[in-house]
Amino acid sequence: MTPEPDPELREALLAAVPSLRAFAISLSGQVDRADDLVQDTLLRALANLHRFEPGTNLNAWLFTILRNLFHSEYRKRRREVEDPDGSYAGRLKVQPDQGSHLDFEDFRSALAKLPPDQREALLLVGASGFSYEEAAHICGCAVGTIKSRVNRARFRLASLLNVEDIEDLGPDSMTRAALQG
């Protein structure tokens, strides 16, 4: 059994859960699967707490663990039945009756059309608030690569959502953060 982390570290781990969950939902597209990813991330982090270097960015470390778990799980799930266009999943849900929900679905759909590397970079920088440097560290690539991916993702999202200027963006702060440079 893993020893209990000190109270300050425990609080920092708990504070990271909402951001980890949002990132996991964005990656997996499924709340239940995302919750499992977050739980596995926390378990792995606790089991490997001796590898965490105090004074470094705990959130970046946790996001890296989550990202690696997701990709490992993805490789394992390749043999499962895929639903690339979402038609099967689309038949399983009830369409929302409020405009903001429809706007969010349009945004999610457009986000899903981005290449995985661009979507990941945009979510880390635009939605999760990581700096370009932190996102580059999480993804294991150069800062310039992350900047390029984010820029291309923002441009493509704006095109997919028919956004021509700032006034076309809705009141949703997540959408604004993802599309603004």
Rank of each mutant, 00 (worst) to 15 (best):
M1Y: 04
T2Y: 01
T2I: 07
E8V: 06
R10V: 05
A12Q: 11
L13F: 06
A15G: 01
A15Q: 12
A15E: 14
A15D: 11
V17E: 15
V17Y: 04
V17K: 10
S19F: 08
L20S: 01
I25D: 07
S26Y: 06
Q30I: 04
V31T: 11
D32E: 15
A34R: 03
D36N: 11
D36E: 15
D36Y: 04
D36H: 09
V38H: 13
D40I: 12
T41S: 03
T41L: 10
L43T: 03
A45N: 03
N48K: 11
H50K: 05
R51G: 00
P54T: 01
L58C: 12
N59T: 03
F63M: 15
I65N: 01
L66G: 09
N68R: 07
L69E: 10
F70E: 09
S72W: 05
S72Y: 08
R75H: 11
K76I: 13
E80V: 06
E80W: 10
V81Y: 09
P84V: 13
P84Q: 10
P84A: 14
G86K: 09
Y88V: 12
A89E: 13
Q95A: 14
D97C: 06
Q98T: 14
Q98A: 12
S100E: 08
S100A: 14
D103T: 12
F107V: 01
F107C: 02
S109H: 14
A110S: 13
L111F: 09
A112P: 01
P115D: 13
D117F: 11
R119T: 08
R119E: 15
A121F: 02
A121S: 10
L124N: 11
V125M: 08
G126R: 00
A127C: 06
S128T: 14
G129K: 02
G129F: 12
G129Q: 04
S131I: 11
A135Q: 07
H137R: 08
I138S: 02
C139P: 01
G144D: 13
T145M: 04
T145G: 03
K147F: 14
R149N: 06
A153Y: 11
A153V: 01
A153N: 07
R154T: 11
R154C: 03
R156G: 11
L157W: 06
S159E: 13
L160Q: 04
L160R: 03
L160I: 14
L161K: 01
N162I: 10
V163K: 00
V163M: 08
E164A: 15
D165R: 00
D165Q: 01
D165L: 04
D168W: 02
D168Q: 06
G170A: 06
S173G: 00
S173W: 15
R176W: 01
A177W: 12
A178Q: 03
A178C: 15
A178R: 00
G181T: 10
